[in-house]
Design a protein around this nucleic acid. Structure first.
Lengths: 120, 120
DNA sequence: CTTCCCCATGCCTTACAAAGACCACGAAAT
DNA sequence: ATTTCGTGGTCTTTGTAAGGCATGGGGAAG
């Protein structure tokens, strides 16, 4: 459940929620914060990290580069400095294509099952 | 100077020559050989590595990905498996553009020098 | 009693470099 | 014209600094 603080209206996410979304440890998120200038979420009075959807986009981009494409952290950092904005768009496209693919896989499975039922 | 052995006619390059061309240590080239199936040069009877120009192209591709783009070795390996051929073309283009750029930089320098000479 | 903070330390892996042995090749010596 | 020797380059194996986090202590907030 999104973070709530006394005077904060907007919906933020905690580090634990972000960690869960990407299935990584909070320690990783904190570590990347020390490595990427771009990943500096706002903090509550107490000091808790407050992630906006934009922050999560940035995290997603880094995650994509480092975990899915196989960039080193310096490599991802350089790429991000140059092509940060353009990069986000590309990754959005990749993600929606991924969803389409999954949809088609399950559809194929259903069709196969149907075929067997009719045949047998 | 290219490697000479009793019965070998074709011009091969030694590991030392390749190392010099890219300004890396021979140990690195041997190490990458254990990491990339694509980089498996022929060997002389004695066991010395014999690099063809094609072998060097492959090395250049790996070098580009790992040293210039910041891929991890697994990342570069995956990319190479998928897009090995296409990748070479792209890197060729990048390299020639690099040469053009260098040319233009020196030209600019010359022009600046000329301008100062006329002015002063 | 869980989740967050910060900080320090621990720790496995990555990506090489160094060490030690071996071999061709040319010059010097027999 | 062999033999010897030295030197530079190569080989494989082993060592190691840095990279990339995870874990644990100590504490606050909810």
């Amino acid at each position: 459940m999104p973070y709530k603080d006394h005077e904060i209206e907007k919906q933020y996410f905690t580090i634990g929620e972000v960690a869960q979304q990407f299935n990584v440890a909070p320690s990783l998120i904190r570590f990347w914060e020390t490595e990427f200038d771009e990943l500096r979420p706002r903090k509550s009075k107490k000091g808790n990290r407050l992630y906006t959807p934009q922050d999560i986009d940035i995290f997603r981009t880094i995650y994509h580069l480092v975990k899915e494409r196989g960039y080193t952290i310096p490599g991802a950092r350089d790429l991000l400095k140059q092509k940060g904005p353009q990069l986000k768009e590309k990754i959005d496209v990749i993600q929606s294509l991924e969803k389409v693919r999954k949809f088609m896989v399950t559809m194929k499975k259903d069709l196969d099952a149907l075929g067997k039922a009719q045949q047998g």
